[in-house]
Amino acid sequence: MSEPPSLLDMPDIPLDMILGGLGFKEIQVLRKVNRNLREHIDDTQPEGDLTTITMHQDDKSFYVELQSNNSTYTVEYKKKDSGCQVKHAGKKHKVSADYITRAFKDLQLLLNHQHNIRFVFLHGIRGLSPAKYFTKECGIGILRVDRRSAFTLNLCRDYRQIWPLIEAVEKMTKVDHVYVKQDVSRIAEFVLDYVSDANWKSKL
């Protein structure tokens, strides 16, 4: 009797075509199925369908909202004892890492499979330097963003964080536009000058 067919027995070309047609959620689920498949996905980095990532923070939690063409998913990373609780789609599980570190680690994994993200929004991120996380934790992912992409960094507080952010994003030389919205108008003006494409600005 012959063995039932397995996705892992597929030659590379059809396997990569199948993976390339999946959404970011399915890719993340598939990574959990099997070590060999996970290694293949991490090696080939199939493109996901994520378009926008929005992050925001309150006193105890860090939220990452992931938006694709058809769906929106929210993941909550909540401080819990010495670690954190990750909540998604009504399911919770505890991990030992710090909640922000864990959020950015997950984000890095996601960005490895997202070459077409148009916008990254940061809302009310305070008490930490997102630039530090982006450059150290998510550098690989963000460097993959192509020239059509844009970042909107929406910081509600502590405008001084804008400078290291701009510095960090400038290092991502493939990014065309950096757009920072801030309550402090003069900072906003400076950043609007920084954006060269007037048509792009009008789309926001």
Binding site: P4, P5, S6, L7, L8, E26, V29, L30, V33, L37
Partner: peptide, 19 residues
């Protein structure tokens, strides 16, 4: 690829015959 929509890892293991 469409078979993977809204499935859990365990369901995908069965559908795709992955050990």
């Amino acid at each position: 690829g469409d078979m993977a929509k809204d499935k859990t890892p365990e369901e995908l293991r069965i559908i795709y015959g992955i050990p």
